[in-house]
Amino acid sequence: MPQDANTASQGKAQPRPKARPNAVSWPLFTTPQPIKRLFDKFPLYTYPPNELPERTAQHRDQNVLYLFTGDDGAHRGLPSFNPGCLKWQAYLKFRNIPFVTVSSNNHASPNGALPFLLPASSSASPLDVPSPVSSQRIQRWTQDTIAKRKGKKNSSNLSNEELKHEEPGAEATPLTEDSTRSDPSDMRYEAYLSLLDHRIRNAYLYSLYLAPLNFNAVAFPLYIAPSTTNTLVRLSLAHQLRAAAEGELTKQSPRIDVEAIYQGSDKAFGALSELLGDEDYYFGERKPGLFDASVFAYTNTLLDEDLGWRDFRVVDGLRRYSNLVEHRERIFEAYFE
């Protein structure tokens, strides 16, 4: 597709420099200078561009985070009901990155999954479009943005080390480029992260999509109903969604053992509670980091009473650890109210 854009731009009103290398690599097809000069006269007249249609993206001058949320929720900046989205929504808030949220769906994403971030466009012209930042790259993008902002503020060169020091959680995630450290604390960090990414996520997936009570009460109105009003299409989407969840769970073990899944999440919450202890945020930091965002993403979604959970198996497992519940409330009050 980029190839197509390249060739197409040769015929554009304003040829892009990108198209040139093509002409150079094919000396046979270069147009003779006099003809090229004649061609360059066309089009003879160029008017200003056409206006965009009404149904288009707003907030082009701001950073926009596309995530699962209701239209009203997007407008008010409420936390997303999807843990994967909420993690990055919370993280951006922790890092003081200004952004607005927009309700979207997976089809819109550059990598097939929400969230993604569309950085503010520097130019006002709709012909200049910034490229989207997928969730895997949001952390990196945030660091770069903060570095740029710092650089502007006191024009002193912050070393990379200092930057990383400022973000303890970020430092060791497997998302950063070099995850080949063997520091014992990093290994511990990764072990805790895998509790979230596997045990808690599995229980969450099972309880949301495969437990019938919750699917109809929570997943259906949140994920399927907004896509379409048509019953047949909704049924088809519901089927796809449940099949995807099932596929995700059977990827790890061929048989879905419900009891084991729930016990796994209970234990994982216990371990996370122990790790947090009496601190406000994980790893004794004064400000929450990426790990706090990851935990908050699940705890907030599970403890949000507005979502209308009907099967409380996972939620009950979480409620037993009051410091996790308080951790969630602390973040909610500080960043989402």
Partner: peptide, 26 residues
């Protein structure tokens, strides 16, 4: 007709991203 706008290219514009997803035309 159930239409699905999907598999956006990396350079897709915000307007196309905004319109991505499902819709049913009757």
């Amino acid at each position: 007709i159930w239409r699905q706008i999907t598999s956006l290219s990396p350079s897709a514009s915000p307007t196309v991203r905004h319109d991505a997803g499902d819709s049913l035309k009757s």
